[in-house]
Design a protein around this nucleic acid. Sequence first.
DNA 1: CCGTTTACATTGCAGTTGCATCGTAACCAC
DNA 2: GTGGTTACGATGCAACTGCAATGTAAACGG
Lengths: 191, 191
Amino acid sequence: MPKKVDHQERRTLIADALMRVAAERGLEAVSLRHVAAEAGVSAGMVQHYFATKDEMMTFAMAVVRDRSQVRVTEAIARLCTTPPPRLLTRTLIAALLPLDEQSRGDARVALAFLAYAAARPDAVARDDSTDLLSFVAGLLPTPDARTAARGLLALMEGLGLYLISGKYSAEQALAVLDAHLDRLFAAGENA
Amino acid sequence: MPKKVDHQERRTLIADALMRVAAERGLEAVSLRHVAAEAGVSAGMVQHYFATKDEMMTFAMAVVRDRSQVRVTEAIARLCTTPPPRLLTRTLIAALLPLDEQSRGDARVALAFLAYAAARPDAVARDDSTDLLSFVAGLLPTPDARTAARGLLALMEGLGLYLISGKYSAEQALAVLDAHLDRLFAAGENA
DNA sequence: CCGTTTACATTGCAGTTGCATCGTAACCAC
DNA sequence: GTGGTTACGATGCAACTGCAATGTAAACGG
């Protein structure tokens, strides 16, 4: 077993470089050589860790997803135990929104990947959003909670788009989210 | 003035071909030659009508935007004069949603363009969404109508994303929209 | 010390890209 | 007709693409 190197570490290092290129110059600027240059390694090394470009893209996609997962987990962990449903919901959604510059870069890449995967049905990864939907639905007090949860998630995605494009500021997005939660939780308590 | 040809017509013909390529094989498959082949013309002709690829992309982007504009106008024109605000709002938003297969293709292309323009600040077109925001805000009976309108538009964009990816069906999307409008207009009437 | 396995780096190749250039045919004013 | 302008088509080119092939250095088992 010669020359021990942490494969996972190298792959994420390359994936990070890929995301930097994609965030700054768009997904179409992502090539083996560009990513290698951004990572400060040779193109051959990239090929050593990813047999094909698609494999590299898929891996980077998974990294983006994992990062957002971590953001959510950390944000919720920062809460007290057994927080009220509304606070938990708000924290969860806010953690998924690209509010700071770093997560905005991630979201830009995620958007590019979305468009990339739209025409590549095989590269589309597993669907983890049904779990999220069920979880959010469980938090909402409204009748037909699943429909309300779908609406909340759609609102989140839309806010993400507007945040990326700079059309809404972080404050505006949060104001919209809070107003929506006002309506959701007010309606539920009355019923 | 030799050889009269309708420039606008040729350009839209090429743009249509571009959108077909983008919808079927992704934006990255859009090249001068592919578009030319799809349009059934020579690559030289494409160059004749678009000096650069970016110019072609920008034009196609404008065509997509115009088409959605037309869809909205037609849907509203199909309504009776002076419809109630809620119906008008619903019709407007529904017309912007990619509910059928044709508009879903358009939306896919629009999404790809969004990602394309995210890293190309110069190619971004004029912002026509502020007019839309003001218009929708004028329809809503809620206090802080602009925030509510922002939420509604964000919801629409998010629903569009989920419709494109096939995660929500058209019926589900409309159910979400109606539930949201229920809350918006109920809250306003109570206030 | 030796062979094998891993970890790269280099080079090359066929294909594609956007675009410039050049040629030519059509049309119209005169 | 002639000249000029427009509308293409054909060709070429430098740059780039993903990827295969090949090389080499290092670490370890024996």
